[in-house]
Every structure is written in structure tokens, then in C-alpha cells.
């Protein structure tokens, strides 16, 4: 049994190591002022980071990415949580239709969603509204995952609370804001953060629908991209670190908090 564990452990470790090797490499070489990736011309220095923050296009892209992600994830969290509450009293069949509707964009190939949104915006004549197009599209990206995070938490709550609040004289909206929202808050925060990450990462849909708005993935993909320049490694390193840290926090802190709240 022990021998088996060592064999599997080694295998798992090797695969994990291979998955993280490229990321580690970029983080290490983000501190190298040498032009290429090779250990022979590794020169330690922070020049890459300085270049990055002196580049206006990159700063604009970072700003746009954060702005769009914040608005989209917030909207998705609100719409999604409301929908979850709405689904509680639905007939089984209606609920099935809602879930199918929710899962469609998740299962569908991203490029098909991107292409269909191009058609939608063309049909509606939304030609130059880059921000609105992207915010709507990114809300769509975040919404399904918000539902998938909030719905199980909602099911875990005591169903009678919402009704008890109303029996005690609260209007449905009061009951929603004063009872449901505080109880669901940890799940909503988690959903917001995951939606935010998905939005910052979203490339294909963004690239098809961005008009002239630049975001982090689109400047990376752009034809005359700086992706082989040293300062690019600094950008990658920052993004990797921020995303990985955010997710570790979500996973450990929030799940612990949620447990605490539920047991109280």
C-alpha cells in the first residue's frame, strides 16, 4: 500500500511540476533584464516592471479589464442571485428550463458565443458602443458560474427564513434584502470574485466584440503585440500572482467563513 502511494505521489508531483514549470519560468525571468529566456543571459533587475508601468497602452488595458470585470461581475452577481431566489418556488419543469438556459453558454463553444454576439450587436446596430458591448458580453460570461455557486448555497439555507420574515410583516423585497442577502453574502462574494476572474481572462468573446477597447488579453493577442518583449514577462507574472492568490483566498477563507456562519 505504501509503495503504491509513493508511485502515485511521484506521478502526481511530476505532472503538477510540468504544469507549473512555464508559470514559474515566467515569474523568474520577469526579474531578468536579459532579452531572451535563457539562463546564460539572466541579469537580475526590475527594469521589466518599470517599463510595464510606463507603457500607457498597457495601463489603459489594465484599467479597462478591471473596470469591465467589476461592473460585469457585479451585475451578474445581482441578476444571478435574484434568479436563484426566484427559482426556489418554480415548478420542476420551469426550473429545468432555467438551468438549461443557464448552462447553454457554458457548454457552447466560446467561439460560437462570440460569433453569435457579433451578429447580435450588428443586428441591434450597436456599432461603436465598445464598453456596453463588452460589459454585456462579460456579464454573460460570469452569470452561469454565479448561479452555479449561489444556487447550492441557497438550497443549503433554511427555506423557512424567507417566509418567516414575510409572516412577521416584511414585504418580499424587504425579506430579500434584509434576510436573504446577508445569509447569501459569502456565496455572493465568492461568485463575484470567480466571475471577476473569468471576465479578466475572457479573450475570444472580447476579441470579437471589443470595437476599439483594449483589454489585457487583446493587447497580448494584437498583431504587433509585445508578447516577446521582456516587459511582457512582468505583466504575465503579475497576472499569475494576482489570480492565483485571489483563488487561494476564495477557497480557504470563504469556505471557512461559510462553514462558521452555517454552524452558528
Amino acid at each position: 500500500m505504501k509503495k503504491k502511494k509513493i508511485i502515485f505521489g511521484t506521478f502526481i508531483f511530476l505532472i503538477l511540476a510540468f504544469m507549473y514549470l512555464p508559470i514559474l519560468l515566467i515569474v523568474i525571468f520577469s526579474f531578468s533584464e536579459g532579452s531572451g529566456i535563457s539562463f546564460s543571459d539572466f541579469e537580475f533587475g526590475l527594469q521589466n516592471y518599470r517599463d510595464l508601468f510606463n507603457n500607457n497602452v498597457i495601463l489603459e488595458a489594465i484599467f479597462n479589464s478591471l473596470l469591465i470585470a467589476t461592473i460585469a461581475a457585479f451585475t451578474a452577481t445581482i441578476i444571478g442571485t435574484m434568479a436563484c431566489v426566484g427559482m426556489m418556488k418554480m415548478r420542476k419543469r420551469t426550473r429545468g428550463v432555467m438551468m438549461a438556459l443557464n448552462l447553454t453558454p457554458m457548454i457552447n463553444a466560446t467561439i460560437v458565443t462570440a460569433f453569435s454576439l457579433v451578429l447580435l450587436y450588428a443586428t441591434l446596430g450597436m456599432v461603436n458602443m465598445g464598453y456596453i458591448r463588452l460589459i454585456l458580453a462579460h456579464t454573460l460570461v460570469a452569470l452561469p458560474i454565479v448561479m452555479l455557486i449561489v444556487l447550492p448555497k441557497l438550497r443549503g439555507l433554511d427555506k423557512n427564513m424567507f417566509e418567516a420574515a414575510q409572516d412577521l410583516g416584511a414585504t418580499p423585497s424587504q425579506a430579500f434584502f434584509k434576510v436573504m442577502i446577508p445569509l447569501l453574502f459569502p456565496a455572493m462574494l465568492g461568485a463575484f470574485l470567480v466571475g471577476f476572474t473569468l471576465s479578466v481572462d475572457e479573450f475570444i468573446i472580447t476579441n470579437y466584440n471589443n470595437a476599439d477597447i483594449v483589454t489585457i488579453p487583446t493587447i497580448v493577442y494584437a498583431p504587433r503585440s509585445f508578447r516577446w518583449q521582456p516587459s511582457f514577462r512582468a505583466l504575465s507574472a503579475i497576472v499569475f500572482m494576482v489570480v492565483i492568490l485571489a483563488l487561494i483566498i476564495v477557497n480557504f477563507k470563504l469556505s471557512r467563513n461559510a462553514k462558521k456562519r452555517l454552524t452558528k
Binding site: M82, G86, P105, T139, L143, P172
Partner: peptide, 26 residues
């Protein structure tokens, strides 16, 4: 039931516009 369903309305409208209608356009 109707009161509850109202909470889902923004979601349904949004998904109809952003998922169902674009697929019809395809």
C-alpha cells in the same frame, strides 16, 4: 409563485437577449 418568479425576470430577459436571440440569428 408569481412574486417569486419576478425575481428571475431580469435573468430571463438577459438570457433571452444574449443567448437565445443570438442563436436564432445564427
Amino acid at each position: 409563485r408569481k412574486k417569486y418568479a419576478l425575481f428571475a425576470a431580469p435573468f430571463i430577459i438577459f438570457m433571452l437577449m444574449m443567448v437565445v436571440f443570438p442563436l436564432c440569428l445564427l
